[in-house]
């Protein structure tokens, strides 16, 4: 057998193997892309279903009138969701940002590591456990009954570790030279943190707050046994009075055998999904801008 024949055979095999590998790789990418398309399809289908059910139910009455039984509007629920979300961010914001500053500025301390670890664990605790905790301690223990305050504190427990971690990461992303320069100029620690460091990363800290807000407004489980439900708009009481909120409408009204109830459920789903997605998308946009600059 001549060497040229052998060579061409070997080359043929190599080419065959090469083609096989190319085809297998292509198949691999098709599978990857397939999964991606499947997930994208799921998101789109969720949005389409919510929109299809929710848009026909949208009207001005929804925003101006409170719920009457299982019909009427959603003014009470919209107001309740806004109150609970704002309340939880007001409580969790300062605590979360403070904790974040501590973790960033005292990096090396053991306690700082402990707090960071506990924050990461607390983020993963099932929200229903927080709801049960709120029920035991605040609704029943302190006798607050179903109320805004019990709900807002429960939600705050859920989002505080989240805000703390985003604040910490925002501070750590700042160049070390900034910190050194400030201290070199003789600035004290509070001045460095509040006048130099925080203003430099205020964008990131705020997006952290925004994302926490989106998390907070979409929650249901921690609120069922801390906030209750009310057909009326808020009367200014922090405790002792139940409150309506949008996610309750979705969960509870879809199980009622009335068409008006289903419409309200879809309308509530549309509103809450729209706001949660808008806030999340907005924050992502801001973050990607910040990353580039």
């Amino acid at each position: 057998m001549s060497s040229t024949v052998l060579q061409s055979r070997l080359e043929g095999m190599a080419r065959y193997r090469y083609h096989r590998r190319r085809i297998l790789s292509l198949l691999g990418w098709v599978v990857c892309g397939g999964f991606f398309v499947l997930l994208g399809f799921a998101l789109v289908d969720i949005l389409v279903e919510i929109a299809a059910g929710g848009f026909p139910a949208l009207n001005t009455k929804l925003f101006t009138e409170p719920t009457q039984g299982v019909s009427g509007g959603l003014a009470n629920a919209i107001e309740g969701t806004a109150l609970l979300t704002a309340g939880s961010v007001l409580i969790a914001g300062p605590i979360g940002i403070g904790t974040g500053i501590y973790m960033a500025e005292k990096q090396e301390r053991v306690f700082s590591r402990v707090v960071r670890f506990m924050a990461d664990v607390l983020v993963g605790i099932p929200s229903i456990v927080l709801g049960l905790f709120g029920y035991i301690t605040m609704v029943v223990g302190l006798g607050w009954h179903f109320s805004v305050l019990a709900g807002a504190i429960t939600l705050a427990i859920m989002i505080t570790p989240y805000i703390a971690r985003t604040t910490e990461l925002a501070l750590l992303a700042l160049p070390g030279s900034l910190r050194e320069a400030a201290y070199a100029l003789g600035a004290t620690e509070p001045v460095v943190v509040f006048r130099v460091l925080l203003p430099s990363c205020v964008g990131r800290v705020l997006t952290g707050l925004l994302l926490a807000m989106a998390l907070s407004m979409g929650e249901t489980a921690p609120l069922i046994y801390t906030v209750g439900w009310s057909n009326y708009t808020w009367n200014g009481h922090l405790t002792h009075e139940p409150l309506g909120y949008l996610t309750y409408v979705i969960w509870s009204f879809i199980n009622e055998p009335f068409e008006s109830a289903h419409q309200l459920a879809f309308a509530a789903a549309l509103l809450i999904t729209f706001f949660a997605l808008a806030i999340t998308l907005g924050s992502r946009l801001i973050l990607s801008r910040l990353d580039k600059s």
Binding site: L43, D45, I46, G218, A221, I254, T280, R284
Partner: peptide
Amino acid sequence: RDVVAAVVELLAAVPSVVFGLWGYVV
């Protein structure tokens, strides 16, 4: 990449009760 990634990662922003609703009706 950021835009495409958002398609999957936005799933995380959908409230769980909305997932429940979708599961229930679809």
